[in-house]
Design a protein around this nucleic acid. Structure first.
Lengths: 166, 166
DNA sequence: CAAGATACGTCAGCCATGTTGACATTCCAA
DNA sequence: TTGGAATGTCAACATGGCTGACGTATCTTG
């Protein structure tokens, strides 16, 4: 992953000033990153928490409540509040596990898929524009730095459910 | 900025799968990004909002309340709650403007500087580790993509108080 | 089989941080 | 002198975190 080959080992990119810029870039970019889905959600009774739940259920259909808790890093009470509204509104469906009947496997309904689509279309549009403007090698660097910035556990979650998808 | 020179115009980096990975990378990385300062803050009576205020006052000493409102993108009521506790605890000082006496210019006190130091040391440490692991060209790409992901107004704020620092 | 552990749901309450709306003060500028 | 700008503040509310406590299936293990 790490492509440490500056040759002259110029570490100028590690100055406090550069780090500060990176920090602020994360702050402002994250705002942009969430702005479009937020705009969609604010008309409905949902928030960012619902977006996250829907996103990860879509990514890993049939995932359990416990898995989702691990990925999202919130308490079950907090997640439950969100899931309950998604059940009630018919966006998410919970099926009792076949092997372990204690588990609830979560799936998006058609209605859930259409919300997910709307949200991720908006978010992907911005991401795509940024990628296109920056170009492939910048995107590569972007991903590399972000991965290095995650906690180890988060990095594992990040690899996703399917592995060999290249 | 944009270094679109793939030659063969291979747009494979714009697949939905790649965009999804970028989206999740932002999500997980942002968690890591805020984790260390959050740990420091949770012992005190402060939260992320205080961190942001202190950060930007430190970056632009003497900035006004109005400036801060623009940068942070929250309501004055929300910001005021935060600023009041920072005043009361002697971390931030407000001086009445000399030219325009309606304005309050904000400065960190010594105590404020020491909190800012603690928070930004923690955050910079993670950023530095990520930068170092990723290498200079990845960092370049990281910054390029993040800048492209911001809203235009945010991008202006991001340039910071000093201009010619390249 | 009995007992403990696990997965999940839920009630109740607290906290941080965002929001609107309304109103007061001070001061600049036309 | 008057309108608007910059700021502070009170009140009320929403979202989405949190802890603690408790209940209920269900699985697992002695």
């Amino acid at each position: 992953m790490a492509e440490q080959s500056t040759g002259g080992e110029s570490l100028l990119f590690l100055t406090d000033e550069n780090l500060r810029k990176g920090i602020e870039a994360m702050f402002f970019a994250y705002r942009g990153f969430t702005a479009d889905p937020d705009r969609i959600l604010e008309n409905m009774d949902y928030g960012r928490a619902h977006h996250r739940a829907v996103h990860f259920i879509n990514r890993s259909p049939g995932t359990t409540v416990g898995n989702l808790l691990t990925i999202l890093g919130v308490t079950k009470q907090s997640l439950n509040r969100v899931l309950r509204t998604l059940f009630d509104d018919g966006l998410v469906e919970a099926r009792v596990g076949k092997q372990d009947k204690r588990e609830r496997h979560l799936y998006l309904t058609d209605k859930g898929h259409s919300l997910e689509r709307a949200l991720s279309d908006a978010q992907r549009a911005r991401m795509r524009a940024a990628y296109r403007a920056a170009g492939p090698s910048a995107v590569q660097g972007f991903r590399t730095v972000l991965e290095a910035m995650m906690d180890a556990e988060q990095r594992r979650q990040y690899q996703g459910p399917k592995e060999g998808s290249t």
